[in-house]
Amino acid sequence: MNIGIIGAGYIGSALAVRLTSLGHSVYIANSRGPETLKDVEQKTGATAVTAEEAAQRGSDFIVVTIPLEKIPDLPNNLFEGVAPAVPIIDTSNYYPLLRDGQIPELETGDLTESGWVQQHLGRPVVKVFNNIFAEHLEKNGQPAGTPGRIGLPVASDDTAAKQKVMALVEELGFDAVDGGTMRESWRQQPGGPIYCNDLPANQVKEHLAQLGTERTPEQHAEFLANQNAAEKHMEAQGIKLK
């Protein structure tokens, strides 16, 4: 397959390594230009291109994996000419303290993180790969049926795109779990029980069921408080996201 990745950070690079190892053609871009990605090309086997080229060449999948704060900086015509059937994967997470600043719609809970991304991109997106560490994404995939195989939730309003992405998740070595609609994707966001805990599929499904589908104000406040505490802990450890 031909897969475009916009964003050459931890998740983008991890995906590039795995996808090229499976025989796919991967085109990877960052905000500084392909000439700055020689090391990434060497490490991943992907071809460095511009963001526009990654979108055009990713005829099977396009992955957007950049900091949330940078989403509005993407070109307005980035997906012009891209077929509607091409799934656009969003991996973003909201880190208001360490990176993104406060985004009003996410603070109030009016939108999920990927719902906000979807509005900016003007195209339906599929939320996945946001709740697993990059190193685990690259190295911890297992054959289907392996006990304890990590389950990854996949959320989207586009049912056909979601099914294609779930098949890709399985190919990468993880159990794909239907995470519902974009409105329900809050359940896999930071601050919740599914975030970066490498749970098997049955436990992911249990947490999805326990959380329900409609986010309550109390749940939104709890997730934000948990994420705030996690970011402060990261800050105390000297971890920087910028």
Rank of each mutant, 00 (worst) to 15 (best):
M1R: 08
G4R: 10
A8R: 12
Y10G: 13
Y10K: 13
I11F: 05
S13P: 00
V17Q: 12
T20I: 06
S21G: 14
S21Y: 03
H24G: 08
V26N: 07
A29C: 05
S31C: 12
R32N: 14
R32V: 02
E35R: 15
L37M: 12
K38V: 13
E41T: 13
E41D: 06
Q42R: 15
K43G: 09
A46T: 04
A48T: 04
V49C: 07
A51H: 12
E52N: 10
A54K: 10
A55K: 02
G58V: 10
G58P: 15
D60H: 13
L68H: 12
E69T: 12
L78H: 14
A83N: 13
V86I: 09
P87R: 11
P87S: 13
D90S: 15
S92I: 03
S92P: 04
N93E: 07
Y94A: 05
P96F: 12
L97P: 01
L98P: 02
R99M: 07
D100W: 15
G101Q: 07
Q102A: 14
I103W: 04
E105L: 14
G109T: 12
D110F: 06
D110M: 09
L111N: 14
E113F: 02
E113P: 00
S114C: 13
H120W: 14
P124A: 05
V126H: 01
F129R: 02
N130V: 03
N131Q: 13
I132L: 13
E135W: 11
G148K: 03
R149Q: 01
R149G: 00
R149D: 02
P153S: 04
S156Q: 04
D157A: 05
A160M: 05
A161V: 01
K162G: 09
Q163K: 08
K164E: 13
V165Q: 01
L168S: 09
E170H: 07
E171D: 11
E171W: 11
L172V: 12
G179Q: 06
M182K: 00
M182Q: 12
E184R: 09
S185R: 05
R187P: 01
P190V: 12
G192V: 06
G192R: 08
P193T: 06
Y195D: 05
Y195G: 05
C196D: 06
N202G: 01
Q203Y: 15
L208D: 10
A209G: 07
L211C: 01
T213R: 06
R215F: 03
R215T: 09
E218L: 05
E218V: 02
E222C: 02
F223R: 09
L224D: 00
A225P: 00
Q227P: 00
A230R: 11
K232G: 00
K232A: 08
H233K: 14
A236G: 06
A236Q: 14
A236M: 12
Q237D: 09
G238C: 01
